[in-house]
Design a binder for these strands. Structure first.
Lengths: 130, 130
DNA sequence: TTATTATCAGTAATGGTTACTATTACTAAT
DNA sequence: ATTAGTAATAGTAACCATTACTGATAATAA
């Protein structure tokens, strides 16, 4: 991966933001520093950077993908009013409860969206592993 | 909401499936019974039915929205291999753990995707409630 | 320097979803 | 039952987020 001005600015802006921006939000920011940059370049670099593990593409619900410069293990809280996403302090997650989250973020906590992830029986057979 | 043949068939097919189909998967099914139906009609009816609380639009990660005729409180497990989504047995969720989920579904459980949901401080001020 | 080629800007194409429009067919009131 | 009013429909265009393409540019190695 070559070092380019575009990638440098994209990563720098993402690291400054703690708002988990979408590609076009980031594009608007970056455009102020590199007016000739194209949206495609932003998408391509976000893709490269996340493949390399330098940033994270968030698997949140919603129509747009969001990106996070913090690759550490942490969770998010999403505002059902405005869509804003904030970080939850890391920590194995065991002892975390709604009141603790509320205290840490200032949110009124309404609930949790939980999906389990795994390998289904059919796919498990294919790879051999169980 | 008037009673139409299209809506009846769409709902009937969705209730028969336990695979949480996307709109176009459902469209392919319904087309076998109503060959002249249009994809837009499927989308419109899924939207109406979920607004009325008759079905559920799932807020899962992924590029396509999925729908579920089971509106009861339950969670899902998603296969990272093929994208298949299965139901987890309802139950307050407290005592649920990976081994229990694995036993119930046959999946090899890899992890959980958790998002907290709430009202952020700014939105909380607007509505007055805390 | 120069050659190589990854990356770029600009734009077209794609996939999922929603919006529009003239037509059809439920439903309620005659 | 007939009619009038109007949801809902089929078909299609538009929309939005994202990806793919193409010729030009610029980062790196020789």
């Amino acid at each position: 991966m070559r070092k380019t001005k575009q990638r440098e600015v994209i990563l720098d802006e993402l690291m400054q933001l703690h708002t988990h921006p979408s590609a076009d939000e980031l594009y608007e920011r970056v455009k102020k520093r590199l007016p000739r940059i194209s949206l495609g370049t932003v998408y391509r670099n976000l893709d490269m950077l996340s493949r390399e593990g330098i940033i994270r593409r968030l698997d949140t619900a919603g129509s747009q993908k969001r990106f996070d410069a913090d690759t550490g293990d942490h969770q998010h809280i999403c505002c059902v009013g405005c869509g804003r996403i904030d970080d939850l302090a890391a920590g194995a997650g065991r002892a975390r409860c709604d009141t603790r989250v509320a205290k840490g973020t200032g949110y009124r906590v309404l609930g949790r969206r939980i999906e389990y992830l795994g390998i289904c029986p059919a796919c498990g057979k294919k790879t051999g592993r169980r």
